[in-house]
Amino acid sequence: MNTNHFKHLLAATMLLACTYATQAQERYFTRTGTIAFFSETPMENIEAHNYKVTSVWDATTGAVEFAALIKAFEFEKALMQEHFNENYMESSTFPKATFKGTFSGVTADQLKKPGTYQVDVKGDLTIHGVTKPVATTGTVEVDKEGKVKAENTFVVSPEDHDIEIPGMVRDKIAKEIQVQVRIDYQLM
């Protein structure tokens, strides 16, 4: 192989590398996404918020991932937060809730101009160490300034994730918990 060939090969490799790089630019991320959940029963309404959710979304492939630290959920009552971590979520053993899946219904090009899109969300939700498939519909909105926001509300049942709720408090914790996700994405 003479030097010339080698130079061509190099150029090709670099071009390839650059293509990868351009593709990489279609990735969006956040470290400050919010997840809130609401448990409503006649006895008591409980809500908690996490403002430190991380997510990466590859708009070219549709692949998306979320992670939320359980201990970062903030409750109105400190004792509820302690019990949530110690007794229900066992957050020292299962520190994170994660979602791994896909967004379909919006393309990387569409994200470059303003618009609102219905997005099908599909994937695996892991809470309390138990993974369950999830399918729901959310929205992705691109505003005039080009900011990309994703929103979704879905329902999680503690029972599905082996979260034990003792008889004494069963009337105070909803069987179906509303989960609200709001993400302001940034280009990576």
Partner: peptide, 15 residues
């Protein structure tokens, strides 16, 4: 260039 483009594939959050 190639190396940096690669690891993204399986675990997006590791980015």
């Amino acid at each position: 260039g190639v190396a940096t483009a690669l690891p993204a594939q399986d675990d997006l959050l590791s980015l």
